[in-house]
Nucleic acid binder design. Structure first.
Lengths: 345, 345
DNA sequence: AATAGCACTCTCGCGTTGAGAGTGCTAACT
DNA sequence: AGTTAGCACTCTCAACGCGAGAGTGCTATT
């Protein structure tokens, strides 16, 4: 791919910025009128032709202005990655909201999703922090009715797993508490494999619970991510590109099947570093449903202990300039929160 | 309002049924051709004129067929309320799905929402069972880090309240467990007011926890309903009436602000009996966002112990004939499940 | 009371047309 | 050589007109 001259670079960024704002193909004349450029429209036309030739722009039809291609957006985003800090005042507002909220993962996730959706005018996704290798911390068993028992399983890192068990026979709350207490003494800090490798318990109830705990921990580990929080779904319907086609419906459907969404998040962020952003433009050939969309994703958390993903989905014409720094900033915030909560345990 | 003749009644129902299927104004000729009626189109025209006069039908424009008015839909629904059973086979399928799922409230709610959305092709809403007067059952305190403690509070009826507390000073897990155990012995089966009325505890930690428990129970009671589950959001976008207008967005927004949605559910079902259906057509003048929509709602559960709401939102042109019996049936199922889970405690 | 016939109304789809926007190319200019 | 003015050309889009079709209400008839 040929190099861009400085002027082409400036023009390309200008054109994309304008298109993101106006949602309309931008022509040479409009460009001259709206921005202070010391060039005539004819010169700009030449440059536009060149940029089109190089694959950064395209024309919806012969006599329309130019529109960015996926390649164009990619260039735009790459230029933006390095710089683009969120204004101090916005940073302060967001931090403030987090610090005055309850110190509760659920609250944080909801808040993060809400902030992202609001700032970016897109659909936000946030997954709860999740440990790849969960370590046992504590179990509580609460008799509910008959043979049914509520098991609350807490992992190191604070991940909570709640589940109803059905035992072979009815057991008193007292015996349950004793059993839980015995297991807590035994398992503290162990990973699932270590627990499974322990010799069988002589007490039948203890052994049953142990088996169920191992199952629950395995299941938690298999889930590739924590619970998914989302917000701003209605934002996407305001976008003109989704107004009448059923593009919007396809993208929305992705959000209803949480398994697909999880797959997407995992596959695209699994190798990315904490703090590193990833921007998927037009589904990158992999995601048919997202051909018209872009996603800005980031991982947060403490590697090895608990990590999660957060991001924003919007039309390809998304407000990257605002979304990217916001996602980056919120990811940093959540990382700090996870860090503060876990470290020292 | 004048009485309808038997023939007018038949015709009105037929017209509405046809319109619900086809989504197009239905004319006299179409009616004669598609259904075996021993009448000429001219006669039908006369009757249609009468029905229009009476306010059950209306014409989008002079030379179009008839479309039901809100009044028309109301009549249609009222006719359907008494009869309309779900086919045995469908009942069986749904029951089966419930009985083979995990005995877990979260699972049930998700499943109920999924079934409702799928059957009705609308957006479903299900709220978790919730007790107006929560009774204490059990508390567990799990130290997480420093002064932070995870409190798991279980109510009679199985409602679980999970919360992070920040204590005045760091406390060992052992002391927490002891405190929890003392309180459990003391509070079992009591309502929040009874607990608040108890004399202060001599132990400072016990007293702190007690206060926090009362707060948590009050907060739970103040929430007018349990957690909200929803499904089928993308269905609503397929409906032609929402294709391009922004009606859809307004209705969707209702679902994003869970507070508004809760308000709606509470206000419309607060006085309705378990098992009784309520159908809101066109927002009934109260809900501007729902002017084009209908909602079928039902309460389920065991009055006085734990109740919840479930329902379906769709266009006014919704498939009532399928939705109403489904909502009624699922409500019955959930009532049974709640009953089985709670009774005997 | 029910129906056949008829004149009337209104929407919708379709082809036409003219204005406007934007382009690419060429020739002139710096 | 790079830049610019001018111009012919292309294409979309909104407006318009028009005819077909659907549906109605009314009247006269059975």
């Amino acid at each position: 791919m040929p190099e861009l001259t400085e002027r082409q670079k400036t023009l390309l960024l200008l054109i994309i910025r304008d298109y993101i704002e106006s949602a309309q193909p931008v022509g040479s004349k409009r460009l001259v009128e709206h921005y202070r450029i010391n060039l005539s429209s004819a010169t700009i036309r030449n440059e536009m032709a060149a940029l089109t030739e190089m694959g950064y722009l395209r024309q919806p039809h012969t006599s329309a202005g130019r529109v960015p291609t996926e390649e164009g957006y990619r260039y735009f985003v790459s230029q933006m990655m390095n710089q683009a800090e969120l204004p101090e005042s916005v940073q302060a507002t967001i931090s403030h909201q987090f610090h005055q909220s309850q110190p509760d993962v659920d609250q944080w996730m909801t808040l993060a999703a809400s902030i992202l959706a609001h700032q970016s005018q897109g659909v936000s996704v946030v997954t709860a922090p999740h440990a790849d290798k969960a370590k046992y911390k504590h179990v509580e068993l609460i008799s509910t009715q008959g043979r049914q028992v509520l098991m609350v399983l807490v992992m190191v890192g604070g991940e909570v797993n709640q589940q109803i068990l059905t035992l072979a026979e009815s057991v008193s709350q007292e015996r349950l508490s004793q059993s839980a207490s015995r297991l807590n003494g035994l398992f503290a800090g162990l990973a699932v494999d270590a627990i499974a490798a322990l010799p069988a318990r002589s007490d039948a109830l203890d052994q049953d619970i142990l088996t169920l705990i191992v199952q629950a921990m395995r299941r938690t580990a298999d889930r590739a991510s924590g619970e998914i929080y989302t917000d701003g779904l209605s934002n996407v319907l305001s976008e003109p590109e989704f107004a009448e086609s059923d593009e919007a419906r396809r993208a929305l459907r992705l959000f209803e099947k949480s398994s697909t969404l999880q797959d997407l998040l995992v596959r695209t962020t699994t190798n990315s570093n904490i703090g590193g952003l990833q921007v998927l433009i037009g589904g990158e050939g992999e995601w048919e449903e997202l051909r018209q969309c872009s996603i800005v994703l980031a991982r947060y958390g403490v590697p090895g202990l608990a990590t999660g993903t957060l991001g924003v989905l919007g039309p390809m014409r998304m407000a990257y300039a605002k979304t990217i720094p916001t996602v980056r900033f919120v990811a940093g915030l959540l990382s700090d929160l996870v860090n503060d909560t876990i470290v020292g345990e």
